[in-house]
């Protein structure tokens, strides 16, 4: 993979790597829409996934990973790029990618459900997997792993 995409992003890139023919760029959370729009205009026409990572107790706590895919519709080479950004754990919030790719909707709902990152500008910011009225975000590292089962060891 050539580094022309990283070069095109210019000053938006905080940190970049290009190992194993897969580029990864770290950008600031405030610039995410700008970065994604620019990459879309450069041929990355498909958002394959958005995922979230909890780096608890490191700060900024949450990391969002956007996996972009350039699907050549008229022949040519396929390309992939990863865009990462960090948001703080105190009030995790980032702009929604739905205006750029509509397919981001449910990925962002899942991240909101399981990690508690709010996406501003999302048209339907509800839980995706957990039941309505659920308290907490289960994939956070400080969420209790076990449920509410009767513990035999504690009640001897």
């Amino acid at each position: 993979m050539d580094n022309s995409h990283i070069a095109a992003l210019g000053g938006l890139v905080l940190e970049a790597s290009d190992t194993l023919n897969e580029a990864t760029v770290h950008v600031a959370a405030e610039k995410i829409i700008e970065v994604l729009s620019l990459l879309k205009s450069r041929g990355f026409n498909r958002l394959s996934a958005v995922s979230g990572v909890d780096w608890h107790p490191r700060e900024p706590r949450f990391e969002l990973v956007y996996n972009l895919h350039a699907l050549p519709l008229k022949g040519g080479k396929q390309e992939r790029i990863r865009v990462k950004c960090r948001v703080s754990g105190a009030a995790p919030e980032i702009a929604s990618a739905v205006p750029v790719w509509e397919g981001a909707g449910w990925y962002e709902r899942e991240i909101f459900d399981l990690l508690g990152v709010t996406f501003t500008g999302h048209p339907d910011m509800r839980r995706l997997l957990m039941p309505e009225g659920w308290v907490g975000h289960p994939l956070r590292k400080d969420f209790p792993i076990h449920g509410h089962k009767y513990d035999y060891a504690e009640n001897k």
Binding site: M130, P138, F143, P144, I145, H146, G147, H148, K149, Y150
Partner: peptide, 12 residues
Amino acid sequence: VGGPFNTYATLQ
């Protein structure tokens, strides 16, 4: 009894 899934998401 919930089986191996003693987790937040499973009914015990």
